[in-house]
Design a protein around this nucleic acid. Structure first.
Lengths: 221, 221
DNA sequence: CAGTGGTCTAGACCACACG
DNA sequence: GTGTGGTCTAGACCACTGC
């Protein structure tokens, strides 16, 4: 046996399943159903739901049950504004603290990202993109901000997956990244802030455009 | 009877008790103990702890139990940097959207704050300060950012309570607030960002100074 | 190889929605 | 009412710690 800590495992798996689109945004999360799916009893499920509620991925109404967070256009605007603010701040700290090894990793990841883009493997591009930002966050070293941002990053990746992440978007990302690396290497904090913020603003605009285009088909199921 | 939803009540009360200093930062949270204190059984306590974990106030190690989040100088720097970034962003959105009624409430709160400061009632000043920022957040209307900020605000207030919030700090707050109101009224978004950010940076510096001064007496118990 | 304390299961209880 | 489904209690089980 020894699955060890059912609640933690359920939480991780459920988070993954929600982001993978297995449960629709705004959709009901029934305890019995989840208990059957994850082969456990009620309480570990409840714990997982509570934790995800704390993270903001799930909403729970007393005596009414849990739902996956509803995603509408205001929510998207909100989390992207949040991302713009946080990534600017993280870029500043990264510029002040980044070391050679991190710069090297950043360049390596960027090369992989560009190769994947050339291959039109946009799932790989998304993954490399996340890795790129993870290195910057690591260099910034603000654990608390990263904790906050992580939840939203995962959501944003899920949204790109649902609404399409194509060549046009990838091209913009690549030039932004290259310039950001230059700024970080030069320890140009103000430049890094501007570049990172602009990068996030572009992502926001792009996402809003796509979400509006796909509007109506908000159900994922 | 009918306490209705033990888990939710426990969560709220425990949060309050932690922030009130009833449990030391970094201190152990034993389930049996909490169950006795809040007159309930294990599971509602566990749920509350999970939710607070999601919010970042509590850390849980599998099979090792829960602790109140450790507060050290890096953590303080981190959450204040986060606050600087978020309040700047919120101030921009507030400048773009604030209405007359909100501006009026802002001025009213500020008058109360100044009166309390004159009376040297610094608990009231802290409360009014929170109300002031609450109106700005409401005007900004970024629910997600506010959700994130709220947890940290509560922590920050708790820290001011522990490390002293005195006349010198209050004086700076007052002039900052007045200028911020002017910028918001004029819909000067860039100005509001600068003022709000600088305001938060000052708070950060002040808090770091006090925390370092009180260092060593990190235990609250 | 106990003791402490965290984790899970099973099942009863109860709130709310519907016919 | 009846049914669905959320919530809680009691107690067994099990992982780690220290004698």
């Amino acid at each position: 046996m020894s699955v060890a800590i059912a609640a933690g495992a359920v939480c991780a798996q459920l988070r993954k399943d929600i982001l993978a689109g297995l449960f629709a945004f705004g959709g009901r999360l029934k305890i019995d159903e989840l208990a059957a799916r994850y082969a456990t009893s009620h309480m570990p499920i409840r714990e997982a739901l509570r934790q995800l509620q704390g993270e903001g991925l799930v909403t729970v109404e007393p005596n009414r049950g849990a739902r996956v967070r509803k995603v509408d256009i205001e929510f998207i605007r909100d989390i992207f504004d949040l991302r713009v603010a946080l990534e600017g701040m993280l870029a500043r700290r990264a510029a002040e603290r980044i070391d050679q090894s991190q710069l090297a990793r950043l360049s390596a990841i960027e090369e992989k990202l560009e190769a994947s883009a050339a291959r039109k493997d946009f799932t790989a591009v998304l993954a490399a993109n996340q890795a790129f930002h993870a290195v910057i966050n690591e260099a910034a070293g603000n654990v608390e901000a990263i904790r906050v941002l992580e939840v939203h990053w995962n959501l944003i990746i899920a949204l790109w997956g649902r609404h399409g992440y194509g060549p046009d978007r990838a091209a913009g990302v690549i030039s932004d990244h290259r310039q950001l690396i230059v700024a970080l290497r030069a320890r140009d904090a103000d430049g890094a802030v501007m570049l990172a913020s602009a990068h996030a603003v572009k992502a926001k605009q792009e996402m809003l455009r796509r979400f509006e285009a796909t509007a109506g088909s908000a159900k994922a199921a």
